[in-house]
């Protein structure tokens, strides 16, 4: 017979969340990252405001996020890099840091379960990330109202919120990964490097690797359809692809399909008139798999960290 634990596993959860958020928000590490995000937002917003295509009045606010001026990428381009960095910075020393400071056994000797500690740390990190991103988001919208002189439409706000949600979910994946490594590796530096390597691998090398694999398959089989499907499947294993695809469709209502277009589809689109924007519900349908993929990835990574942490001995 398996013994059943008594008492709530969530006891003390919000105490841990509050402490983690207080720690993060007052730490030097987060201060530096916040300054970087703020500067990036200010610069890209300035560029976007100067480069907004004149005459078009559709989705001006969404263009604040996506308009770029060479050589600088748009704000969303920077977010793709900064969000994983912040998420990893929030999570890489969460468990091993407690272990090395010898606070872990003392905290676990209080009447809480390990569940509350791990989930509290995860939620604390996620809330911090959400807080920072929401603040930046509000700032951009606010400055946009100020400079453009018009309020955002309901659809713009809804799309903007979806974009925020996707960005937080994308951060959740890297936070989850960083926490898995922080449970697995005793040295915070090792955990940070491991998390950054995985991130680099998926952001920089994965695309190249997919290209090579698809080329190899192309030599072996001549089917174009199969090649395209394979490429799409492999590319979407990377959370980076999922994130880029989802914000592409959310912030550009004109986007009607994701991934490389087949000639047939392209011709069809021509016939329908490509430039007419999709309604929000259709854009949402388009990125639904990507969004759920990001959230599912976050949950899976947290579950792995949870299992590892539950099995861990709290002394060396």
């Amino acid at each position: 017979m398996k013994p059943v634990r008594e008492g709530s596993p969530w006891r003390g959860l919000w105490v841990v969340v509050a402490k983690e958020m207080a720690d993060h928000l007052t730490s030097v590490r987060m201060g530096i990252l916040e300054v970087i995000v703020l500067v990036t937002a200010a610069v890209t917003l300035y560029m976007a405001l100067r480069n907004l295509p004149s005459g078009t009045s559709d989705f001006l606010f969404l263009r604040l996020f996506t308009t770029s001026q060479e050589p600088l990428p748009a704000f969303v381009g920077f977010l793709g890099v900064l969000v994983p960095l912040i998420a990893i910075a929030l999570g890489f020393d969460s468990i091993n840091g407690e272990f090395n400071r010898r606070t872990l056994s003392r905290v676990l000797a209080q009447p809480i379960y390990r569940d509350a500690l791990l989930l509290g740390k995860f939620l604390g990190g996620l809330c911090t990330l959400a807080l920072v991103l929401t603040a930046i988001w509000l700032m951009i919208i606010g400055l946009g109202i100020f400079r453009l002189g018009v309020p955002p439409t309901g659809e713009e706000v809804a799309r903007g919120l979806l974009f925020l949600l996707a960005t937080i979910a994308y951060g959740g994946i890297w936070l989850g990964l960083a926490m898995v490594f922080s449970v697995r590796f005793r040295q915070p530096a090792t955990a940070a490097l491991a998390a950054i390597s995985v991130w680099l691998f998926f952001t920089v090398f994965w695309g190249m690797l997919v290209g090579l694999i698809v080329q190899a398959v192309a030599q072996w089989s001549g089917q174009v359809q199969l090649q395209v499907q394979l490429e799409l499947f492999l590319a979407r294993l990377s959370p980076h692809t999922l994130y880029v695809e989802s914000i592409l469709a959310i912030l550009n209502p004109e986007v009607r399909a994701l991934g490389p277009l087949l000639l047939v589809q392209f011709l069809q689109l021509e016939g329908w008139g490509v430039r007419s924007p999709l309604p929000l519900s259709q854009s949402l349908m388009l990125v639904w798999p990507q969004l759920t993929g990001l959230i599912a990835g976050t949950i899976v990574l947290f579950a792995i960290g949870y299992v590892l942490f539950q099995r861990q001995e709290i002394r060396a």
């Binding site: 634990r5 000797a109 009447p111």
Partner: peptide
């Protein structure tokens, strides 16, 4: 094993080399 919260709310434990949050 089954009622750790009950035990831990009544027992004070000082681990060897106790650590605190330095900051």
């Amino acid at each position: 094993m089954r009622q750790p919260l009950e035990v831990k709310s009544r027992v004070g434990y000082l681990p060897d080399q106790v650590g605190f949050y330095d900051e």
